[in-house]
Amino acid sequence: MIEIMNLTKEYGSFKALDSLNLKIEKGTVFGFVGQNGAGKSTTFSILATLLAPSSGTAYVNGYNVQKEPREVRKQIGYMPDFFGVYDQLKADEYLHFYGASYGIPYQEREKLIPQLLELVNLSHKRDSYVDLLSRGMKQRLCLARCLIHDPEVLILDEPASGLDPRARIEMREILKELKTMGKTILISSHILPELAEMCDQIGVIDQGKLVAEGSVADIQDKLRGEKIIFVKVQSSLRETVSFFEDDPFISNVQLMDDDHTIRFIYKGSAEEQTALLKNAMVKGLPITSFAEEEADLEDIFMEITKGVEMS
């Protein structure tokens, strides 16, 4: 579990983090989204005990990052946004080094390392020098390194950045597997759609402030009071269209090309939406489907940051 309270980080007079508050429950996959320079890496560095905050506190599994940094280090596996590798080490020596750095005995590491390499699909690269691996492979190897002491919390700073689409998908599959293992995962990105699919909770940060937080759907609701809804009907097309056109919360009613689908923008709350559906049923409209459009999360993100900049 992660708890961040009034976390502030100042560089001179510049506030990289401004009273950040966050609570992430155990087993949650948390997506931390924000543009470059928003303060994601700063937050993660503080959680990883690499940076002292100017004020405020943060707890990892109940351990204070400032007062008990050693305990915190046991709890977390940290992957920086930019990292390097030692050029004269082989993949398994690389993992041995970090394993030993966590005090894991040699025999145990010998058992662990093949399993980890298997998990990140690098078994075939066990004896390759790490600096010769592709960027995606290095990223996965680094992920294996994060896991070597079996931490409860993973803090991954933009693990998918700089990867080609294939490597991205591969990374995502591994993260999904880790999710099933019950780890608490914090993962940051400046591209929201990359995260949406696998996250239980999302926090949006802008200029050091948390501007939105909640489930993907929550954020969607919060960010735009309006949704795009598609309704399919078997018959009575005209009747249905006029029914929706009469609703005060509905605008831009359109008939789609297939002559069965109606599209409109809805501004009402969830309760009002339920009432609308009930009404339609009472009217006996032959509706076969009523669905919200899966909005492109990137659009939402653009909207948030736009809103913040304006205020």
């Binding site: 690499l50 990292f83 005090g103 002491h149």
Partner: peptide, 10 residues
Amino acid sequence: QTLNMMLTTT
């Protein structure tokens, strides 16, 4: 950029 990872170990 290998120092940070070393410093987050125990």
